[in-house]
């Protein structure tokens, strides 16, 4: 009886349903908190790429409040931009951040790019979501890699929009060092950045 097909089917159905029901309930109950955490994470990334100072241990609610007070969100039909008017004492200059997204070597890469309002220099780059090889491509998430972009120009000497990662272009005003052993990741990251840079530059042209 215990090994009959019907019993097996019933058993599986009941065990499966109970487990599924339990997880659905827990998932639904924790949903608001998870969403608040994800929102705080996003806000934290925007604030840090724009150079806004905040306490490292700030709670989710504090971060969201700070974000809402200091950052102006501009949403057009498909793009979003985060505008920061600069700190009161002038130590942090005004800048605009846009989200970065695209394929890396192993999985999607997401981050933010901050530029000055005149679209001449990069104020900051972060990559908060990536699945690149730890120790090699994964270094794109590290501070040393992201910090290289600060102060680089958005255009090369001929005036073409874009940046260069690695190679002979690394010494140019729009170039940064690549990661040894992570050429593929660097190429993909460069493509993601350049797509975003070209878009903002062309948007600016179109809108005067």
């Amino acid at each position: 009886m215990k090994d009959s097909g019907l019993y097996t089917l019933k058993y599986s159905f009941i065990v499966g349903s109970v487990c599924a029901l339990l997880l659905t309930v827990v998932g639904a109950v924790t949903e608001p908190r998870k969403r608040a955490n994800a929102r705080a994470e996003e806000v934290r990334n925007v604030l840090s790429v724009l150079g806004v100072e905040f306490e490292a241990k700030a709670s989710a609610a504090e971060l969201v409040t700070l974000f809402e007070e200091t950052i102006e969100v501009q949403e057009s039909d498909e793009h979003v931009a985060y505008r920061f008017a600069g700190s009161v004492d002038g130590s942090v200059k005004p800048s605009v951040a846009i989200p970065l997204a695209g394929p890396g070597l192993w999985g999607p890469v997401k981050g933010f790019l901050a530029v000055d309002p005149e679209l001449t220099t990069i104020r900051g780059v972060t990559f908060h979501e990536q699945e690149e090889t730890p120790g090699l491509g994964g270094e794109i998430g590290q501070k040393w890699f992201c910090d290289q972009f600060k102060g680089k120009t958005l255009r090369d000497e001929a005036g073409n929009a874009g940046i260069v990662i690695g190679g002979p272009g690394a010494k140019a005003p729009n170039g940064v060092d690549a990661i040894t052993g992570a050429t593929m990741t660097c190429t993909k990251v460069q493509a993601i950045l350049n797509k975003a840079i070209k878009r903002v530059v062309e948007d600016r042209k179109a809108n005067g």
């Binding site: 215990k2 090994d3 019993y7 097996t8 058993y11 599986s12 065990v15 499966g16 487990c19 339990l22 997880l23």
Partner: peptide, 17 residues
Amino acid sequence: LTPRRVRMIGEVAIIAT
């Protein structure tokens, strides 16, 4: 109560939960 044929998948379901 567990049928032998689905023993392991049943265990995995419980563990995963």
